[in-house]
């Protein structure tokens, strides 16, 4: 019974909203607003075709390449900068500046330097998405507990083992916060880089639909981007729950 109630809470509002949309558009001839059934049909028609291989897969692979590289590099540089005090003080304002640059302006810039190709798009994603991970890792590494740090020294846990068992884990809550921000930035940059300079990809396709006034197709593209955002967020939440189980448990106890 409780389970049913939870399901009702979960799907209640979405169903109500879709129904409302359906009722409101039942006699509509509005050019901009598609009907639910029509949108679903178009969605299948557009994306379950060769477009999946031409537009969707390349987009996803660019996104994931860029994202994984930003996370790995961000953590790596974050740990190095966070561990060396002088390096941190030296680089802090410069890093703050890089983080503050709105990442989309990197698209025209890197287009010029690298040219219009896949590397450029991946580089755009890295240049935009690395900062939240990097800066949060620096924060996390800096904030490691002094007593735990002493404990490591007493038990002669140093070098690589210290990073693996202590620093990385200790900074993981901050790192995950950074990763979450990086995911949304990476997705934005994937779309923009394709809208701006590309002949394939999701962003490109959606802009094409808009320019040719293929409104239902355009909506289906928006829906697909939304679904990608939601899936990434679900994957993230799942990972976060596993990685940070100790952290949430600890916080619960501390309350």
């Amino acid at each position: 019974m409780r389970f049913l109630k939870q399901i009702a809470y979960f799907v209640g509002l979405p169903i109500a909203l879709i129904l409302l949309w359906w009722v409101l558009t039942i006699d509509s001839t509005n050019f901009f607003v598609p009907k639910p059934g029509q949108l679903a049909e178009t969605f299948v028609e557009v994306w379950f075709s060769e477009r999946f291989f031409v537009d969707v897969l390349p987009s996803i692979s660019r996104l994931l390449t860029g994202l994984v590289l930003s996370i790995v590099l961000g953590i790596l540089f974050g740990i190095i900068i966070g561990s060396v005090r002088i390096l941190r003080q030296l680089s802090e304002p410069v890093l703050e500046f890089f983080r503050a640059i709105p990442p989309p302006v990197l698209v025209p810039l890197l287009m010029l330097i690298i040219g219009i190709n896949d590397q450029m798009k991946v580089m755009v994603i890295i240049f935009g998405a690395i900062w939240p991970v990097l800066l949060n890792t620096v924060e996390g590494v800096r904030a490691v507990d002094e007593v735990l740090s002493d404990t490591c020294r007493v038990y002669r846990i140093s070098g690589f083992a210290r990073f693996r068992y202590f620093v990385l884990r200790s900074a993981s809550p901050q790192i995950m916060t950074g990763v979450r921000q990086s995911i949304s930035i990476a997705l934005i940059l994937m779309v923009i880089s394709e809208m701006f300079a590309s002949s394939s990809g999701l962003g490109f396709a959606i802009v094409q639909f808009q320019r040719t006034f293929a409104v239902p197709q355009m909506w289906s593209g928006i829906l697909l981007l939304g679904l990608m955002g939601v899936s990434l967020s679900l994957i993230f939440q799942f990972t976060e729950k596993r990685v940070l189980r100790w952290y949430y448990g600890l916080r619960e106890v501390d309350r």
Partner: peptide, 15 residues
């Protein structure tokens, strides 16, 4: 070996 006063901070909470 050392046993610290702050037991809550000397054990690795993720282990």
């Amino acid at each position: 070996a050392v046993v610290f006063q702050e037991y809550g901070r000397s054990l690795f909470p993720w282990m």
